[in-house]
């Protein structure tokens, strides 16, 4: 589904990603871990198509198509979803209206008519239930005055509504208390299928107790320096990142 070859990317002429190789197949869950500043968020932004980042070398294929020239919205229309570490506040636009716009713009891009209001409502109700989201929450302005946990839960709600093929969850666990974490994780697990894939970007192992990865990669200094199974995450939790840094820097 996603194939990244020798990806180099920089922002304002500062090289951040220095040769990433990664392949994610349908049905898989990958965790990308690493110390602060290793390039984790950059990688997710580059996959999602943030314009400030310049790809200087390498390719990203999504469903066998090179997506380098596609805009962020075109990538979204193809089924790439990025859950933000810091979701943006949009006063005056309700959660419901925002997601309606996102869904109908995606449908428009695929040549489909707007989703009938009745179906939309039903879908919203269903997905809100899945994430234990209160009806009142849906009429609030998007992310405005939301707690950290509410913001993240809202991100996963949008993911549930958009049903992406590839979901990249960037530090979704940060700022979540244990109950919120459980709800978010069980939401993600319920949405997981053999046709979609998830990339979890995280600093800590905590989330991986709830969403179990098939593969764990360690990102350091813009490269994937180690890959393994879920046991690698436990090892990192126990030993921290220093031993990896030492191995690489040696």
């Amino acid at each position: 589904m996603l194939k990244i070859n020798n990806l180099h990317a920089s922002v304002e002429d500062k090289a951040i990603l220095k040769g990433i190789n990664l392949e994610v197949k349908a049905g898989e869950v990958h965790a990308i871990m690493g110390p602060n500043g290793s390039g984790k968020s950059t990688l997710s932004s580059v996959i999602a198509g943030k314009e400030e980042y310049e790809v200087t070398e390498g390719e990203i294929f999504f469903d066998e198509e090179n997506i380098e020239e596609l805009s962020a919205e075109e990538r979204a229309h193809k089924g790439i979803f990025l859950s933000f570490q810091y979701p943006v506040e949009i006063p005056g636009v309700s959660v419901t209206n925002f997601i309606k716009t996102a869904i109908n713009e995606t449908r428009k891009a695929k040549g489909l008519p707007d989703m009938p209001a009745k179906d939309m409502l039903k879908l919203i109700r269903e997905k809100a239930e899945l994430l234990e989201i209160d009806r009142k929450f849906l009429s609030r302005s998007l992310n405005q005055g939301f707690s950290g946990g509410e913001k993240k839960r809202n991100e996963i709600f949008q993911m549930a509504m958009l049903e992406p093929k590839l979901a990249i969850l960037d530090e979704t666990d940060s700022g979540l208390d244990i109950d919120a974490l459980r709800i978010v994780a069980s939401g993600v697990n319920k949405l997981k299928s053999k046709d979609n894939a998830v990339i979890l970007i995280t600093h800590y192992q905590r989330l991986l107790d709830y969403i179990v990865p098939d593969f764990v990669h360690v990102l350091y200094k813009g490269r994937i320096v180690k890959s393994g199974g879920k046991e690698l995450a436990h090892e990192l939790e126990e030993k921290g990142y220093d031993w990896i840094k030492e191995e690489v820097d040696a």
Partner: peptide, 16 residues
């Protein structure tokens, strides 16, 4: 710009 990217990454085109 980051707000723009947020919305576009949800499939909302630049103009909207």
């Amino acid at each position: 710009e980051s707000a723009m990217f947020y919305m576009r990454s949800r499939g909302i085109p630049e103009k909207e």
